[in-house]
């Protein structure tokens, strides 16, 4: 059995709108892979296809050696899925939700009870087992969701925007929990996100923009494409300032909204020089190490939002 999830030339169109355009990527067991993209980038479409809920228009998906088009049932046994919309029944207790899930996967009786206890223990919600889901906080609900998805010991865990609605500390806990799962149990974790810091914490990421995969690699690799520093200049007259900077410094600024974004070596010196050269046109200037947002802007010409 191969330990990978492979996507080959996957395309999907809704009517005449192309939501996914020839996406190819491979994810290995034991890693946390993040699909980063703004709203409308096609990541939810890709997620639906991977979770067997949507048939792609063309292309191929292989999950741990099973062909998605022909072996959906075998794949469903291997998948644990956490959707963006809460998948728990708020009127049922934590235990009842997990029992329902277990029964769907053919688990019952004592093995199921043990498995429920074990997972709730691991995710730190054992003491809430008899409470109705509606009284739990968003963070706790999310943990129960993941416990629910893990109940049948899936080899692949898919999560759609898992941190939506969570506060910063709950997000960090979730991130650590997923890393541990991937590393200790060799589970393949694939999540979608529109949050740069969440993508930053993944082992590898793919960046989607209007249906196309524009980057693939570790966050470090992607940021290294930029090299040096990134300088941001705020100006009320960026359109006029941009060519002037090009002429004087020989760099290539990118104008987004009211910001000029310039990649350069030794950013601290450049900031000083550029502010000295155009004191009246520049309202503010700062520099920093490249972020994934810079990678996104470089690749698409748009700001990430």
């Amino acid at each position: 059995m191969t330990d990978t999830l492979e996507v080959e030339n996957l395309s999907h169109t809704y009517g005449s709108r192309r939501a996914l355009d020839s996406v190819s990527l491979t994810v290995a067991s034991g890693e946390v892979f993040g699909l980063l993209g703004p709203n409308g980038s096609g990541k939810t479409t890709l997620f639906k296809i991977l979770s067997t809920l949507l048939r792609p228009t063309s292309g191929r998906v292989l999950i741990l050696g099973h062909e998605l088009a022909t072996a959906a049932k075998a794949i469903r046994e291997l998948l644990g899925v956490v959707f963006q919309h809460p998948g728990l029944d708020a009127k049922l207790t934590v235990r009842e939700n997990l029992q329902h899930q277990g029964h769907l996967y053919g688990l019952a009786g004592k093995p199921l009870r043990h498995r429920i206890a074990e997972l709730l223990e691991r995710f730190g919600v054992s003491d809430r087992i008899n409470e109705r889901v509606e009284v739990l906080s968003g963070g706790l609900q999310r943990r129960v969701e993941i416990a629910k998805a893990m109940l049948h010991s899936p080899r692949v865990l898919l999560l759609d925007e898992p941190s939506s609605g969570l506060d910063v500390s709950a997000r960090r806990q979730l991130r650590d929990a997923l890393k541990t799962l991937a590393e200790t149990e060799n589970i393949l974790v694939l999540l979608t996100t529109h949050l740069l810091d969440e993508a930053e914490a993944c082992n590898r990421i793919g960046i989607l923009d209007v249906g196309s995969l524009v980057a693939l690699g570790t966050p470090e690799e992607l940021k290294a494409q930029i090299g040096g520093d990134v300088v941001y200049i705020e100006s009320t007259n960026g359109e006029a300032l941009s060519p002037a900077i090009v002429q004087q410094f020989g760099v290539s600024p990118v104008l987004t909204d009211s910001h000029l974004r310039i990649e350069c070596e030794r950013g601290h010196e450049f900031v000083k020089d550029v502010v000295t050269a155009f004191p009246d046109e520049i309202q503010a200037a700062r520099f920093g190490k490249p972020t994934l947002e810079d990678v996104f802007i470089k690749l698409t010409g748009n700001r990430f939002e």
């Binding site: 067997t52 809920l53 963006q84 998948g87 769907l104």
Partner: peptide
């Protein structure tokens, strides 16, 4: 979203 969870089960 509850039904989605049921639909991805085998």
């Amino acid at each position: 979203g509850f039904l989605q969870g049921v639909l991805v089960a085998p």
